[in-house]
Amino acid sequence: TEEYTYTDKEKADRAAKEWANRGYTVTVTQDGPTYRVRVG
C-alpha cells in the first residue's frame, strides 16, 4: 500500500482515476486541507 498526499482536490481525483484505470484499488480520504490517495 502506498499513500500520496495532495493539497489540490482536482489533482487527487486525477491521480485516483489514473491508478484505478491501471487496476489498483484506490481510496481517497480528506484530511483537513489535504487529500490522501491510498493505492493498493
Rank of each mutant, 00 (worst) to 15 (best):
T1F: 15
E3Q: 06
E3N: 05
Y4H: 05
Y4G: 03
T5I: 14
T5C: 13
Y6Q: 01
Y6I: 02
Y6F: 14
Y6P: 00
Y6K: 00
T7K: 09
T7F: 13
T7Q: 10
D8Q: 07
D8I: 07
D8N: 11
K9G: 06
K9T: 03
K9Q: 07
K9I: 06
E10T: 09
E10N: 10
E10H: 10
K11T: 14
K11L: 14
A12D: 00
A12V: 03
A12S: 03
A12Y: 02
A12I: 01
D13F: 15
D13Q: 12
D13Y: 15
D13S: 09
R14L: 12
R14A: 14
R14H: 10
A15M: 08
A15D: 07
A15H: 06
A16Y: 05
A16P: 00
K17P: 00
E18L: 11
E18T: 07
E18A: 10
E18Q: 09
E18G: 06
E18S: 08
W19L: 06
W19M: 05
W19I: 03
W19A: 03
W19K: 01
W19F: 09
A20G: 07
N21V: 09
N21C: 14
N21S: 14
R22N: 07
R22V: 04
R22L: 13
G23A: 02
G23P: 00
G23Q: 02
Y24R: 04
Y24M: 05
T25F: 12
V26P: 02
T27H: 09
T27F: 08
T27M: 08
T27S: 09
T27L: 08
T27K: 07
V28L: 07
V28P: 00
T29M: 10
T29W: 14
Q30K: 13
Q30V: 11
Q30R: 11
D31E: 12
D31R: 06
G32I: 02
G32V: 02
G32S: 02
G32A: 02
G32Y: 04
P33N: 14
P33W: 09
P33I: 09
P33Q: 12
T34F: 15
T34Q: 08
Y35I: 07
Y35R: 01
Y35A: 01
Y35N: 00
R36M: 08
R36S: 06
R36I: 15
R36P: 00
R36N: 05
V37T: 01
V37G: 00
V37Q: 00
R38N: 09
R38M: 12
R38H: 12
R38E: 07
R38A: 08
R38K: 10
R38F: 12
V39S: 02
V39G: 01
V39A: 03
G40P: 04
G40A: 14
